[in-house]
């Protein structure tokens, strides 16, 4: 199947997904389950990575600012900008594409190969709507929060790294993060996180839903889903940046 056919099939899938849920109470329960599986269970990894990446960014910036003409507050400023502009919305999404994307593909793919999706269809349930819509909503609701958590912890990690290594003064760093604050950048991070959340929920769902074969194919589909989700995030990141900041 060529790429264009996959794209067409993906959009036809979305057409089935965006229908009114058949039973509101069942949909509500599924949504809370997905928020737990896709959102709450991702807090740990996002927090851990953001904290240390923030630390690394501040240390690297400090080590590269040798000129006495450049103020030390630049370290805090650079860490803040890096976290808001790129790390939190984009790289946290790529981490989530790996963690959550493989989970989504393998869980839906296993349902496909064990005929659980056929069972839903035989019961008269729109399986795409039942399985995928709660995942999309859970991701759209929760991932912006994760991104803001990543921004906060990254900046905090940068400050802790400075304090522990004595590469810069705490006050310089705090001055830096308060410097030249542009609220649009927060909006930019939010827009990117919402778009990437949609990609993280839908591309792995597509790969899982249309898998054919057995356990081996589910494994392959999970790998493909992570690769394609990451590729699409990187491409959209470029276009969104050009569109919003260019």
């Amino acid at each position: 199947m060529n790429y264009l056919e996959h794209v067409g099939k993906y959009f036809l899938m979305l057409k089935q997904v965006f229908k009114r849920p058949q039973k509101r109470s069942v949909f509500g329960a599924a949504l809370f389950r997905e928020i737990e599986d896709l959102g709450l269970k991702s807090i740990g990894i996002v927090a851990f990575i953001s904290f240390f990446v923030g630390g690394v960014v501040s240390i690297q910036t400090a080590l590269n600012v040798e000129s006495p003409l450049i103020p030390k507050s630049l370290i805090g400023f650079a860490t803040k900008r890096s976290m808001i502009l790129e790390f939190a919305p984009t790289f946290a999404s790529i981490i989530l594409a790996g963690k959550v994307g493989s989970f989504i593909t393998s869980s839906i793919g296993t349902m496909r190969v064990t005929e659980q999706i056929d069972a839903l269809e035989v019961m008269g349930i729109n399986s795409l709507n039942y399985l995928v819509l709660p995942k999309i909503l859970a991701a759209l609701l929760f991932y912006p929060l994760l991104v803001f958590l990543a921004i906060f912890l990254g900046i905090f990690g940068g400050w802790i790294a400075g304090v522990l290594t004595d590469l810069f003064h705490s006050l310089d760093y705090i001055t830096g993060i308060q410097m030249d604050f542009d609220p649009f950048l927060i909006k930019y991070a939010f827009i990117k996180s919402v778009v990437f959340a949609f990609v993280i929920a839908t591309i792995p769902s597509y790969h899982g839903y249309y898998v054919k074969g057995g356990a081996l194919e589910v494994g392959r589909a999970s790998t493909q889903a992570v690769v394609w989700t990451s590729v699409v995030i990187i491409l959209l990141n470029y276009f969104l940046t050009q569109l919003l900041l260019g």
């Binding site: 296993t110 349902m111 005929e115 035989v122």
Partner: peptide, 15 residues
């Protein structure tokens, strides 16, 4: 569809 019941080869119970 609601008048139909199906028993699948592998049972297809929701894990």
């Amino acid at each position: 569809r609601q008048d139909m019941g199906m028993v699948f080869q592998g049972s297809a119970l929701f894990d």
